[in-house]
Amino acid sequence: MNEIERAITEDELHAFVDGQLDSARRPALERHLEQDQSAAKRVAAYKMQRAALRAALADHLAEPIPPLLDPRRLMKLREARRRIAWQMAAAILFAFLAGSGAGWLVRGRLPDGSPAGIPALAQEALIIHAVYATDRGPPAESGAARQNAIYQWLSSELKHPLIMVNLTAIGYRFVGGRLAATDHGPAAMLLYEDAGGTRLTVFVRPMPDRKRDTRTVHVGAGDVDGYAWICDGLGYAVLATAPTKDLHDIAVMVRHQVDPT
């Protein structure tokens, strides 16, 4: 009896609209609406709002999930990042213990000592290569027109015009490109493949705070090998799964194409 006599609250009107009302209170609420015209009008309007909002926003749910947000990919990235971070830590330690200034990581930290320069670039590139270049997904479309479109798209995403890298002279054709998220912003990953199925990654990320060009340095972790440099505010890395023949020459060729001066 008490349950019926208790006045209907504003919260209960909303709970009724949202289907969150305790079923025991439903009869009392329906009686209340019969007697209170203004409450009934409000409830009807709220229900209409709810339905209209759901309908208006329903389209978003049908949109395909972009590959960058695929949780399986993200999981792989996480694992690769952890693995490569360990390998890099081991490499730093080794270079340190060996007392050698020749380790690329140590060199990458000099002359300004910041860990954000080439080491960060290399780590990102290595991770992206480990995850995506080894991923034999559906064959990507190729062809010059597509290559143009992909470079244009990536240039606009990076807000930085990218110079197209052409490696057909040494037997590598353009396979595809993708946008990658890094801790330091968006990066472009361009994939090339030779007739034997060897894959090369050209990784490019804007590094606007790096005004000074660097030398080309050797980078690598685990079974991925490559070269990296910074030029005109863009960081580059050319990577392949080791052992890849003439990788240094290929890196020099890429650098020459993107920076002819």
Partner: peptide, 17 residues
């Protein structure tokens, strides 16, 4: 867990928008 997570992504994108 990954499958459940994936099922939520469209709604998360909608909320982010």
């Amino acid at each position: 867990g990954l499958r459940d997570l994936e099922a939520c992504i469209p709604a998360l994108r909608r909320y982010a928008r």
